[in-house]
Design a protein around this nucleic acid. Structure first.
Lengths: 107, 107
DNA sequence: ACTTACGGTAAGTCATGACTTACGCAAATG
DNA sequence: CATTTGCGTAAGTCATGACTTACCGTAAGT
């Protein structure tokens, strides 16, 4: 269910841009904000959202907060995506669904 | 850039639920709506959004419109996700970025 | 032809959330 | 210490978009 959090977090263009910038490596907030068209507090808020979604982690360095990617946060999203291809798993899921819910049909 | 459309489309819980239901197979609108807590027009609107995002396709069957998954629509999203793991590609991207923009640093 | 199923679109409401400025606090700097 | 740097949070504004009901056309069934 955590793939849902990743999706909502990454849906916003600005927030996604912040996330993508972190591919360059760990970075303090101001550096990120400098490259963005929005204010620094806006970036802070996005980082908070990303952190709560498990997509980013924070480390303190004196007065600075260094943010970096958390690739594990993308794992669940990746797995969820795969459920749309994996036919074996899908068949299994479909069957489980059916035996659990006799009245279920897609007509 | 089309992964962005997929992300925004799949961010909404209801819309995602519609999308996930289509894993069971192609289905007309009313059947989908029957399993959902929202009205039929709402589902119609979500299907329109999913279609515009390339995640779903529509086929006419008399008065009905049969909707089905378009897995290709997820491809770009999948590829985008992979860019966060592929170190080689990342290094290359980083280098390209740097030679193009001498003043760029992440300090 | 009349009626009923199916579904898209219009119009309007309401909540969410992305942004801003203002502020406060902790750590570095002089 | 006083000042500056770095960042989070509060409060308020504004746009977006997810839903509703009402309505329309089209295709099937009687």
């Amino acid at each position: 269910m955590t793939y849902a959090n990743a999706l909502t977090a990454l849906a916003d263009p600005t927030r996604r841009a912040v996330f993508e910038q972190l591919r360059r490596g760990p970075s303090p907030v101001s550096s990120l904000a400098a490259r963005m068209p929005v204010s620094r507090p806006a970036v802070s808020q996005h980082l908070k959202a990303l952190k709560e979604a498990g997509l980013v982690e924070e480390r303190a360095d004196g007065a600075r907060r260094i943010y970096s990617l958390r690739r594990e946060g993308l794992m669940d999203l990746r797995d969820w995506l795969d459920t749309f291809w994996d036919e074996a798993l899908e068949a299994f899921r479909r069957e489980a669904e059916q035996s659990k819910q006799p009245r279920g049909d897609s007509k």
